[in-house]
Design a protein around this nucleic acid. Structure first.
Lengths: 249, 249
DNA sequence: AATGGCCATTGCAGAGAATGCAACGGACTG
DNA sequence: CAGTCCGTTGCATTCTCTGCAATGGCCATT
């Protein structure tokens, strides 16, 4: 690991909190101002930070562009997208696609509900990992020791009274999900929103992504949502097949 | 500028093209493999690159998260969003919001058309700078020498027969846009798609962002689209007012 | 099963780059 | 007009990064 690069990269999350001036950056990094200046300059040259008119720094444009290109290079996403669109045209609700990476689950695609009531979420946002249906699916596929290790490390915020409260309950839930091959989140994140999800598997049978359908209570009840499960699983399986076939190893 | 950081950051666009292994990265950077390894390690620790199962590297999850947080910190975007939604509910077409930064124009928000025919674009994608309505608006606000400098540097790809062909034509167009206070792109990017756009101004009158409405020929003709101009300008002005008021110096 | 080659990885010594200091300069303020 | 604050620059020192060469693991080939 390189100290200089390490320091430079530490600036990024710092600026993600909001714009900062040279002094603040230097202080947070615990380095001399001149050092911070040179790091910022280098980041600037690469377009990762931007200097606004008041001379403060904030995250720059190329960061978006990079994130975009990155997400477009994920072949699961590319393959899945038309299927998600198609499912959305059938059932209308919001559809998410998510992957697991380094202790985080994040959305990599989304098709908006065609109902007026929409939920807030964004591609790139980390998922509420202890409650979301897609998170359960992705974590359920890890090996038993990995699951344990991850479950122990997590926090279990009680978004609602139905949120999963602790590691033990979470591991039980993962076991159930693993067994049944699909997952739900019934009001565990937002009181009035339910989700059902299904896994997408690669050629080796491992779960490479997960998709879910979300809908607020006011549009469909949890029971009605569950009747869509066969369609969701069928879509997920179709994506799995295409993905497995497509992967040239 | 720091050499080490410079090299490390050069890895990111490289990986944006697609996954690469250690040897490829070292070669592209023209450094020893051990050096490349350590740089990649550092990037990895910060979550900016991810090591996939075949040991190759690709861009990592935190990059998305950072880009997300960055875009959410842009106050123009936050203020504009509800207005864009509202306009979309009135007229149905795709709406974009864009800013100019360091010789690039990029979309920072988008509301999808409610018509079935949608256009392809993505938040974070650089805009076709020589033809897009929002690009014209943002560049038209630069000082005359700046406009000249930028116009000279650009390429003028002929996306269609109606694309702006060269710097001279572009500068004329910018002058016109500056004069009239709104802009169009009539089939200059995609033969069958027209856009109209209006600027969003800060308290000092400078253009801080631009919005546009895009619709394909098959839904509305260019003439019909132009009839929406008053609504678009009204929306842009409303955003300008709120933004100017909101900015605490 | 054994061998060869490829690629990632590590320890080390030298060299080159990053660091912090101190001084400068410009902008804003009282 | 003086004073202060913040960003910026040149420079000597030091520490870190670099490239080399050797190791070890993995896969394919025979």
């Amino acid at each position: 690991m390189s100290q200089t690069v390490d320091r430079a990269l530490s600036i990024l999350p710092l600026l993600a909190e909001g714009p900062a001036d040279l002094g603040q950056v230097a202080e947070r990094l615990d380095v001399h101002k001149s050092t911070a200046l040179r790091l910022l300059r280098t980041l600037h040259e690469h377009g990762l930070v931007y200097r606004q008119s008041d001379q403060r720094y904030r995250l720059g444009a190329r960061l978006f562009a990079l994130a975009q290109e990155a997400v477009e290079n994920l072949d699961v996403r590319e393959i899945a997208h038309p299927h998600l669109i198609e499912l959305n045209e059938q059932i209308g609700h919001t559809i998410h696609l998510a992957v697991y990476e380094e202790n985080e689950v994040l959305y990599i695609d989304k098709v908006e509900s065609r109902y007026p009531v929409r939920m807030y979420s964004r591609i790139g946002k980390p998922v509420a990992i202890t409650v979301a249906a897609v998170a359960k699916l992705l974590l359920a596929d890890l090996s038993e020791p990995e699951r344990r290790a991850v479950a122990e490390k997590l926090d279990y915020p009680m978004y609602t009274s139905r949120s999963i409260p602790n590691a033990a309950a979470f591991l039980r839930e993962l076991a159930a999900v693993r067994e049944q091959g699909w997952a739900t989140d019934l009001g565990g994140h937002e009181e009035s929103i339910n989700c059902i999800g299904a896994p997408i598997r690669g050629a080796d049978g491992r779960v490479v992504a997960a998709m879910s359908v979300s809908a607020p209570n006011v549009v469909v009840t949890a029971e009605e949502l569950l009747t869509l499960l066969p369609q969701v699983r069928r879509t997920a399986d179709a994506i799995s097949r295409e993905y497995s076939g497509h992967t040239p190893a």
